[in-house]
């Protein structure tokens, strides 16, 4: 579905993403992992056409730069790492904007089933009771769920999520990741997500790209990438020992 070929992103003299290539196929949940500053979020912004880059990104065999913004948004839904709203929009209004790409223009059409998708997105993310609440009154986790609901309402083929577990408590982490897992089971869908929690990556991911200082350190099936050798090399520490130590506290 998505083919990233030799993509490089530079900010002045700094190379943030260095000649990166990978493919995302139908049914895959590709986890993008790596330490801070590895260029994971920049890569996501690059795919969503928010950052200038060299190289090629193809979506269904066609250069992504040739898609109009609304065409691209019908194929790819992006959940950013940081979300904030300056004005007192309601949860329903923010989620409803997810239908923009399907009904551009002053009058949003109600005939495309969009209203049902908005309702379903509100229900799935547990936001129904808050639908008329101002987003300014929401907690970080509720706001994160609001933007996730917006992406669901957008009904794309590929979900691109930058730290979807941000601000979520354990209950909602489990709920949201299970939800995405369910979403992925339908045909013609794929997920690319940035995660810092390697346990979540291992539990839900099918494939992974491990990044370090802009470069790809390893990629492939999740069990082949998230190995002690690869992780220790990228994080400069014994990751497995640290995770065992954390877990042993609960014994």
């Amino acid at each position: 579905m998505l083919n990233v070929k030799n993509v490089t992103v530079r900010y002045g003299e700094h190379t943030i993403v260095d000649n990166l290539s990978f493919r995302l196929h139908e049914g895959q949940w590709l986890m993008l992992a790596g330490p801070n500053g590895a260029g994971k979020s920049t890569l996501i912004e690059t795919i969503s056409q928010g950052v200038p880059y060299t190289g090629t990104i193809e979506l269904h065999g066609r250069d992504i730069r040739r898609y109009r913004p609304n065409q691209l948004a019908r194929k790819i839904g992006v959940l950013a790492q940081k979300n904030s709203v300056g004005y007192a929009y309601t949860v329903e209004e923010v989620v409803g904007l997810g239908r923009y790409a399907h009904t551009p223009g002053f009058l949003s059409s109600r005939s495309d089933g969009g209203k049902d998708l908005v309702e379903k997105a509100l229900e799935l993310t547990g936001l129904e009771p808050l639908r008329h609440s101002s987003v300014l009154t929401l907690s970080g986790g509720e706001l994160q769920r609001t933007f996730l609901a917006q992406v669901f309402a957008q009904d794309p083929e590929i979900l691109i999520l930058d730290e979807p577990a941000n601000h979520l408590d354990l209950v909602y982490q489990k709920h949201i990741f299970s939800l995405i897992h369910e979403w992925l089971r339908q045909p013609g869908r794929a997920v690319l997500s940035v995660v810092h929690d390697l346990s979540l990556a291992k539990r839900y991911g099918t494939h992974a790209v491990l990044k370090n200082r802009g470069k790809c350190a390893a990629q492939g099936a999740i069990e082949d990438v998230l190995t002690p050798e690869h992780l220790s090399g990228v994080y400069d520490m014994d990751v497995y020992a640290w995770m065992r130590e954390m877990l042993n506290q609960w014994k």
Partner: peptide, 20 residues
């Protein structure tokens, strides 16, 4: 007006939902 709502929520979010 709809595009302005998207901008008022955030320019990046506007791009993500398909606003030119």
């Amino acid at each position: 007006a709809r595009e302005l709502n998207a901008f008022a929520i955030g320019e990046d979010n506007a791009r993500h939902i398909g606003v030119n």
